[in-house]
Amino acid sequence: MKVKLREISKVFYSEKSEEKEVLQRLSLDIYEGDFFCLVGTSGSGKSTLLKLIAGLERPTRGEVLIDDQLVERPSAKQVLIFQDYALLPWRNVQDNVEFGLEIQKIPPAKRRATAEKYIRLVGLNGHEGKYPRELSGGMCQRVAVARALTLNPEILLMDEPFSALDTITRERLEEEMVRLWELERKTIVFVTHDLREALFLGTRVGIMDSTYGRVVETEKIELPRPRRSGSAAFTALQDRLKQKLAWGRAI
């Protein structure tokens, strides 16, 4: 078991000191090498869940375990990739990708070589000198992925990374994500509100429910790769899971 969430609750306080429990006694197991896709409506606590796994937030109750170790603080072993990329606007592509290595005090020569390797991997060679504002959204997200990979994390946590992108760019990055996963076999926890995306990418999908703040259903995706979202099997599965997504939601 790579990631184990045990009876997690997370309570936020609004400005009027009202309690809001976004996660309620949530339990979830994610296996080594899983491409786990978590689907849920916005506000269902998906992002919070990723921050808990990343160690950037602490649960109010319950515990997060990675390799049976309690997660108490952030670590470069599990890296979060943000929807808005979280690139430093005053650094060019090269320096953004080197950021993690710089923090880890890797010597400059090695930094440069490692960054170059991952910049090539995500197809951004030739753009090293460009600044984030000169890049399209898709390219920014490639930079963020390259930066995350430089420290060779065991777990990638992705928070709706492609939802701000246009459909064409998004589908291309999804394909690249699958190839990356097949290549590096990292454990990936991928959050999305798009069931199609989850079924295209994942080895397992979890359905998150906003009313209860829990994962109400997990299912192994047995569809063969490369997957096509138009195929009969894909559509059938998508329709079935959509039912569960709708049921869980109290309207």
Partner: peptide, 25 residues
């Protein structure tokens, strides 16, 4: 290195023109 100003470049946004390269290795 705090500067937000980028050096002059030919195209402002190069777009995702390049091929799929995640698997190039």
């Amino acid at each position: 290195g705090f500067s937000y100003a980028a050096p002059e470049s030919e195209s402002k946004v190069a777009g995702d023109k390049q091929s799929i390269l995640f698997g190039e290795k």
